[in-house]
Design a protein around this nucleic acid. Sequence first.
DNA 1: CTGAAAGCGCTTACAG
DNA 2: CTGAAAGCGCTTACAG
Lengths: 340, 340
Amino acid sequence: MKKVFLKDIARSLSISKTAVSLVLNGKGDENKISKDTQDKIISFAKKHNYVPNQLARGLSRGKSETIGLIIPNISDTFYSKIAGYVELKAKELGYSVLFSSSNEDNKKEAELIRAMLNRQVEGLIIASTQNNLKEIKSLQDDDFPFVLIDRNYPEMETNAVVVDNFNGLKIVTEHLIGLGRRKIGFITLEPKLEAIHQRYLGYKSALIEAGINFNKDLVKELSPLNYEDEISKAIGDLLKFPNSVDSVVFVTHYLTSVGLRELKRRQVKVPQEVAIVSFDELTAFDLVDPPITSVIQPVRDIANLSVEMLVNRIEGKDKTMVQKTVLDSKLVVRKSCGTF
Amino acid sequence: MKKVFLKDIARSLSISKTAVSLVLNGKGDENKISKDTQDKIISFAKKHNYVPNQLARGLSRGKSETIGLIIPNISDTFYSKIAGYVELKAKELGYSVLFSSSNEDNKKEAELIRAMLNRQVEGLIIASTQNNLKEIKSLQDDDFPFVLIDRNYPEMETNAVVVDNFNGLKIVTEHLIGLGRRKIGFITLEPKLEAIHQRYLGYKSALIEAGINFNKDLVKELSPLNYEDEISKAIGDLLKFPNSVDSVVFVTHYLTSVGLRELKRRQVKVPQEVAIVSFDELTAFDLVDPPITSVIQPVRDIANLSVEMLVNRIEGKDKTMVQKTVLDSKLVVRKSCGTF
DNA sequence: CTGAAAGCGCTTACAG
DNA sequence: CTGAAAGCGCTTACAG
């Protein structure tokens, strides 16, 4: 089957390329091209399996019908789920998606943004490393459509879909307090990210409102790149804390995983001796020993809303300057927090 | 910062577009363009943040420096990990990656293949639904570079990187037998996929070699789209089997997850009453109650090898007709199989 | 309704 | 070393 081009169709049918292009793009009627001609073109195209060259099309129209999705890491289940739903929603609205992972490297993220613009994406959804204020600002200045997800820049007003990290953490911490826990450890990441910082504030706020002394020694900050090595010392420190902590809050599913592994290694009884809760979860968290109480993020909503917001912006249906949506997360109580 | 084009650079520097294009593509030396001129061009380009339009470039050269990756589902941790490594490796070799999920829909997969060709990808890595023999064959006939991963078409010789499914399942089944289990259930998917079929054969072969009667009643085939509903009956049937099975083998991580959930719901003691093992695993399988014995697939190798194979093919370094690599999987023994 | 033509931004023989 | 020119495959005013 030889590749067939627009001009081939035109020649074979003795019709101008213009007409063929118009018809194939659904503009036959508005250009008053006869039903007959239209049918001929369409059936010929179908028969010969014609597919337009997107590169040429995009170049000519200055459009690509593609949006870009930049995430820290496609291997992370949270982001891979978002990617899946973004793809679905985008396709539904007529766009393809170009994915790329920044691997938490802000230089790489900046490059990816360029590379995507370069490929003429019409809009960008970014879960940013949050160290690219300049790049993001320049997108904003150029009026380029984009939506930040998961992580947004507090120093900037942009389109964004985020989760209420503060409340998510507050609720789960309050839950622990309600169950009688008082010495609540907090294992988090180096607080470069606003989302992570909000979780920290939520934790702190729950303590303070409950009249519990906030103690910095109970907060352990691990490096996003080296947390697997650092977890042992962090857990060790928390267990050494006067009479040991009675519970630990983890700010991400992977910290929870390594933390629980470490607790098990040290033969600490969870939840009897130390209760644990997790922000964000892994598929198997309900099967874990003990099943892990988690704050679940609405991945599907994050994906759907961000795509809709972006497409509205691209297609100019929605010219409001900025639109920020904050979604609720959901507390799922399981055994790891010591509920009986 | 206004967008700068090739012609802008040429005009500003009073040099021909040809020279600018050549230099920027690293062909300055071979075209004997003076160092001086080259430096001028390069520094100007850098200063003005010039980035070539890939669409135009691709159209003109008939190349896109992009490869396509078609997988059943980017949300599945197995495929998302592959995607992550494919992206890394491809970037290393100078290619971008276009991902898309077929959602196990062969019509959609066929569309995706077209859409990707259409975007002028230079090669394709496909984890196929295996119902597109025609499309794959036509790629082959057109001498279009592609590599099948995870799933390949047994009726066809193609470039492929797959895992030794037969042996993986055989080993884990033998392990159960070695631990004294005799009534071994098998929960699988409707056997359209060769990979799944091989796992079935591995299971069967282990039984037969051990002199255990193979019993069809112990094999439960669930629908890939509806396994969550079907698991309950499947497990129920296995437990009703004369005196109940003493163990179950699951062919994918998600079947293992739902299966274990169901066993727990029925308050079956795992592994005492029923031991379980899984082909492929989830991050938290070592934390699960009980930790799950799994056959682990070499995702990283699958990704790296397939990209290398594809790029070799694209760049013509490797003209051998077809190359099929079969990778070993690794058995990780944990408590769910009843080891003490 | 139709066709010739310009243009999208680049690359690449080709002639000098 | 350099420049004019054609071409990649499409879209889209524009004139008829």
